[in-house]
Design a binder for these strands. Structure first.
Lengths: 230, 230
DNA sequence: CTACAAACATGAGCATCTCTCACATTTGCA
DNA sequence: TGCAAATGTGAGAGATGCTCATGTTTGTAG
């Protein structure tokens, strides 16, 4: 029969990632143990170099047991990713809950991105999971090189029209515009065509607004937010 | 001795990707042949599912010959990526060369992104190389799901303050803001700390400018570009 | 024309890693 | 205590990237 009449039939984490919903206490502990060992190994050598045999060994179980809980290696990484996402979601919801005006929305977002950045900096495993999502490191380098090259072209032209803006500011803004342009395209072609079109248009609007003259209320990505009417 | 006194000692493509610079006509043809076969296979089944044995078979050569030219599988993909980048670079340079004012810069960028988007839509192999750079498809889905969830939270709050802006516009802008936020963080933590800080700040400036009230000259990502002073 | 060295070609098989499966052991209730 | 379900085990199947010892072709020097 079934065993241990678990307090709630709710699966401990999420339903699709685990191959078999653990019903005994021992196995529920092991899921946590596996994830902890995987986290340690990813921190140590990266998710790509993490071997399933190592996870099993470190967790003190056999390969077979490991595969009893997780259908494949990617499922372990996915589970960790979802845990990090859950934390992020709480942060976002908490910050947005306080907002009662556009000014506060701006403030909340500034805070949110700082928190997010700090999380990325502080959590090497989170970083690895999302960055090593890129299969090939050299390919990523080529990608960034392309953004830098395009950014350079843009910055050279842009700088001519905003002489009062520090070149450093223009450079990083131009680099970012190019890189996020790539990201936008990859996003746009991965959803249906209608939404993709909308996304590309949204990005253009977002970026084109940067190309305004120097001066009060203007300037390359330097507009004084506090002065915007809301 | 050396053979065929090649017209210029310049390597045909790039120096690091090829294991051995081909000096005979036959082998130079083979490099092109390999890349063409790889392209066809990627188009057919994706770069991840492309097998080196298949590439060799389709090109009518042995595995050993394949590895004589390309040090590993990733090198083939990288070479293709660099070719696509070269095409993009030409487009960017060509569009930016004409620019003589901020208004023209805006126009050039709008055109550029449309061209870029069309290229992505038209070139499945280019799309695959950069999108399948993401190792795990399910992980990518989780990532997008997170952006959608965050975007929903944002859109709900945002919409309260810009009642005249169509909800659809807000939704895609919010989704994009969240997704590009992720992209920005991943970029920021992959460069040195000082540049990372600048990039995060640049993104915040870029985004916060979106949160302005409805009306002439304002509105959620709908500011009338043509009206901006330049 | 021939000989020779360098360039190029070959494919069996090595190394590595993920994941399976048939079987053993443990758990908790009846 | 017995029994069925749950859990544990690890040898090895299967797949694939890549190597290396050896054979073949190419172009030039003598």
């Amino acid at each position: 029969m079934n065993q241990e009449t678990s307090p709630a039939a709710a699966p401990p984490d999420d339903e699709t990632a685990l191959r078999r919903t653990p019903s005994q206490k021992r196995s529920r502990e092991r899921v946590g143990q596996i994830l902890a060992c995987a986290t340690a190994l990813i921190q140590e050598k990266g998710s790509d170099a993490m071997r399933m045999s190592e996870v099993a060994e470190k967790a003190g179980i056999s390969i077979g047991s490991l595969y009893q809980y997780f259908p494949d290696k990617a499922a372990i990484v996915r589970t960790l990713a979802e845990r990090y996402n859950a934390v992020c979601n709480e942060c976002i919801a908490a910050e947005l809950a306080k907002v009662t005006s556009l000014a506060e929305l701006r403030e909340a977002f500034a805070v949110l991105f700082d928190i997010y950045y700090d999380m990325f900096l502080a959590e090497p495993v989170m970083r690895d999971i999302w960055s090593a999502m890129q299969a090939d490191k050299a390919l990523r380098e080529i990608d960034l090189q392309q953004s830098r090259a395009g950014g350079q072209l843009l910055a050279d032209v842009w700088a001519r029209f905003v002489p009062d803006t520090p070149r450093e500011t223009i450079d990083s803004a131009a680099f970012l515009i190019m890189h996020l342009g790539d990201c936008t395209m990859r996003l746009a072609v991965s959803v249906d065509r209608a939404e993709g079109d909308q996304i590309v248009e949204a990005y253009k609007r977002m970026i084109l607004r940067d190309f305004v003259a120097d001066g009060p209320g203007g300037g390359a990505s330097l507009i004084d937010i506090s002065g915007v009417r809301s």
